[in-house]
Amino acid sequence: MADPSPSQIAGWLEQAQLGDAAARDQLFGACRSFVAITARVHLQRRLQSKVDASDLAQQSLLEAHRGFERFAGQSPQEWFGWLKQIVVHNAADVAKQYRGTAKRDAGREISLAAESSNSAAWDHTPPDPGPSPSQVVAGMEQELLMAAAIEQLPDDYREVLILRHLERLPFQEVAERMGRSRGACQMLWARAMEQLKGLMSQTSQATREPLPQ
């Protein structure tokens, strides 16, 4: 297998759409951790800490696999959009079911303050528009590696990175969400970063290795 190059995903996608089963497996293998991380972030957002994110990821991947023929887009951009759409839809479904069956528990877990400060975090607009979605997707291989590395971390390391980096919450809120002190969270975060850095340098050294499956 070749190095992950910017055209790798596009190539697999094209081959898979022409009916190449091996390319399709490679495509799904490469996107597995991306789907897993997206599922985790969306469950976090819906405050559904009790739902198992890997179930959601698994279900979404299965759906994408089964419905692959129906994916009519061409670019990797559309492909990741499609995957994300499936995850977002399933997360919404799960949240709906969960709210229906366990209203009491959910109510106990979510405080009004947590919800409002959380939504305020989303309203925050950065001073600079940042890269456009197409620029973001052009180098997706790097992000896929990052997603795979995060997936390998222990649970609490992963959680602190998701809250602090992917959700961009300040430490005070990370601490509230994780039910630990602020100092303990910063400590946990520092250790998580260290381990992540180690994992990332391993992958970049072993460039001959295939993408994690």
Partner: peptide
Amino acid sequence: DCVQGLEQLAQVIESPLP
């Protein structure tokens, strides 16, 4: 590399659907 990589991943997950 690590911090920028995480930030890029955040942007991909957050970017609006095509």
